Simulated scan of single mutants.
Amino acid sequence: MCPSASGLRTKTIYLIRHAETEENVRMKGFHDVGKALRNRQMPTSNDWKLGSEFVGMTLKGVTDSHLSSRGQRQVLQLKSILDDNGLLDEVDLIAHSPLRRAKETCYGIFGLAAGISDDDMTTTATTTEKTKTNKPVVELSCLQEITQLEHLTQGKRAVRKRINSFERWIESQGEDVSTIVIVGHSEYFMIMLGISEKFKNCDVWKAVYEPGGKWTVLENEVRLDMFSSRNEDQGNKIF
């Protein structure tokens, strides 16, 4: 990577959204109930159940959950794709959000040997582990997704503070770290990049970070439901 005007080197960053979660499933049920009612139709009993669970957990402030069974399959599919195409072979460092959905996705994709317990999810400190391929893996509290309560009370200010911390962390990495993988959350990434396109579950996007908070050359490298038809496509450039 070439040095920036400030003398600090730019970094290649791969952004990966977590796989589908149990919360995503409940949220879909909630939206499907609303859609049915707007169309003057009776929602299915399963959608009622999922929708009520979503409302109840949201009111309790429960915003994190494990991966769904579909999400677990998505992780295996993405791992297979990345293993086959070697896209991330040159990665120097991996970081993930402390939320269990991001951690489970990261562990599954990169083969962390340790299991995940609920106790693991309570830490907010930065921790470092090694994958089976000896890549360092860092848990960063600043990568945590914005919550609905934060959104209602602070707008985007809370997540922007975390984004600023994250960007300073990138800039603190030495010259030996040129390529970093981040496993995190869609809204966080969208606010950070200043885009409106939502990241799908297990999307892999490539970007270049320039010191001072500038993100450029954003390309969609892997999207699970499109990958088989893309073949040798070189990516969908956004900016």
Rank of each mutant, 00 (worst) to 15 (best):
Gly115Trp: 05
Ala113Thr: 11
Lys130Arg: 11
Leu140Met: 03
Asp119Tyr: 11
Val138Gln: 01
Leu112Val: 08
Ala125His: 07
Asp119Gly: 09
Thr131Leu: 04
Thr127Leu: 03
Thr122Glu: 11
Ile116Met: 03
Thr126His: 10
Lys130Gln: 14
Thr123His: 10
Pro136Cys: 00
Ala125Ile: 04
Asp119Ser: 11
Thr124Arg: 10
Pro136Phe: 01
Thr123Ile: 11
Lys132Tyr: 05
Ser117Ala: 11
Thr122Met: 08
Ser141Glu: 14
Val138Ser: 00
Thr122Ala: 09
Gly115Gln: 06
Pro136Asn: 02
Thr122Pro: 03
Val138Tyr: 00
Thr133Pro: 01
Asp119Val: 15
Glu139Ser: 12
Pro136Ala: 00
Ala113Cys: 06
Val138Glu: 00
Asn134Cys: 12
Ile116Ala: 00
Lys132Arg: 07
Asp118Lys: 15
Thr122Arg: 13
Pro136Lys: 01
Thr128Trp: 03
Leu112Gln: 09
Glu139Thr: 15
Thr131Asn: 06
Lys130Trp: 13
Thr133Met: 03
Val138Thr: 02
Ala114Ser: 08
Thr131Trp: 04
Met121Pro: 03
Met121Tyr: 06
Val138Met: 00
Leu112Asn: 04
Ser117Lys: 14
Lys132Met: 07
Ser141Lys: 14
Leu112Met: 08
Leu112Ser: 04
Leu140Pro: 02
Thr131Glu: 07
Ala125Cys: 03
Thr133Ala: 08
Ile116Trp: 04
Asp120Gln: 15
Asp118Trp: 08
Thr128Arg: 14
Lys135Met: 07
Ala125Gln: 04
Val137Thr: 02
Gly115Leu: 06
Ser141Ala: 11
Gly115Phe: 05
Thr128His: 08
Leu112Arg: 05
Asn134Ser: 13
Thr123Gly: 12
Thr126Gln: 15
Lys135His: 12
Asn134Asp: 10
Ser117Asn: 14
Gly115His: 07
Ala114Lys: 05
Thr128Asp: 04
Met121Ser: 14
Val137Ala: 01
Thr133Val: 02
Ser117Trp: 09
Thr128Ser: 12
Thr128Val: 14
Asp119Gln: 13
Thr131Lys: 05
Leu140Cys: 04
Lys132Asn: 07
Ile116Leu: 11
Val138Ile: 01
Ala114Tyr: 07
Lys135Asp: 04
Val137Pro: 02
Leu112Ala: 05
Thr122Tyr: 11
Asp119Thr: 09
Leu112Asp: 01
Ala125Met: 06
Thr124Ser: 07
Ala114Val: 06
Ala114Trp: 12
Ala125Asn: 05
Ser141Val: 12
Ser141Phe: 15
Thr131Ala: 03
Leu112Gly: 01
Thr126Asp: 11
Ala113Gly: 06
Thr124Asn: 11
Ala125Gly: 03
Thr131Pro: 06
Ser141Pro: 09
Asp118Pro: 08
Glu139Lys: 15
Gly115Tyr: 03
Thr123Leu: 07
Thr127Asn: 08
Ile116Cys: 01
Thr127Ala: 01
Thr127Gly: 00
